[in-house]
Amino acid sequence: MSNPRISRYIFSLILTVLLGYAVFAALGTQGGTLRFGPHSPASRISGAMIEKNIEGARPNLTAKNHTGPSNVNFAPGSKGLENGAANIVSSIVADYRSFDTFGEVLVLFAAVTGFMLLLPDKKGKNKGVTSEAPNFVLAKAAPIVFAFAMITGVYISFNGHLTPGGGFAGGAVIATGILILVLSGNEFNSQLLSLTETIAGLLFLAVGAAGLVLKGNFLQNVIPTGVLGYIFSSGIVLALNLIIGLKVGAELGSLILAGGKKEI
């Protein structure tokens, strides 16, 4: 082959097409049964998670008495469910499959630790990613945007069990606040972030250990689940969302700080 580049492209193309053919051909044989929804709702394990019916005590959640906030009107039967989160995705992430989330938090922890370990060891100051001074608007607006980002981030973490969102989304929003601060040339204490990260990790373990000690299983819910739809409900989901929000915010923040050093 005179041109290794072209032969490489052809080889890759053939390989990809073969793989794609295998995937599509195999999926085609299965017809439409990959579908969820009306086809096979109850046959999946998520069916019981949606109905909050794993323990077998099916709650009665008919909408009758208007007892809660405006968008929530459940009968008293929605009190003390096996899992009190209105957002079913949150209930899976932070309760039914919380051990996955535990692993996920560790993955992020390992990635951030590794990122810090691998970056060249220079004593650069956290003084903005660009060499230019920040312009007037950015410099003045940054503290205000930072405050709003923090509030929004905490709000998203706090409401993760009621509305779309949760700890990871909230933490990411908190980290954008830190990014704006770094972009505008402000300093941020990276030691504080490392400490927050570690303490949030220990808190996660503490919540899990509480379940282990009190109920006998790691990460089992020990907090009352409350009434569906209220802010202080859903027990472990709320607690874990807050902790994850703190931890992810601190971790992404220290990623930004480490990456934003001038002399990388």
Partner: peptide, 13 residues
């Protein structure tokens, strides 16, 4: 067998 989170298999981990 340990059911993490107290959720019985196959639902929990």
């Amino acid at each position: 067998v340990v059911a993490l989170g107290g959720w019985k298999p196959p639902y929990g981990i």
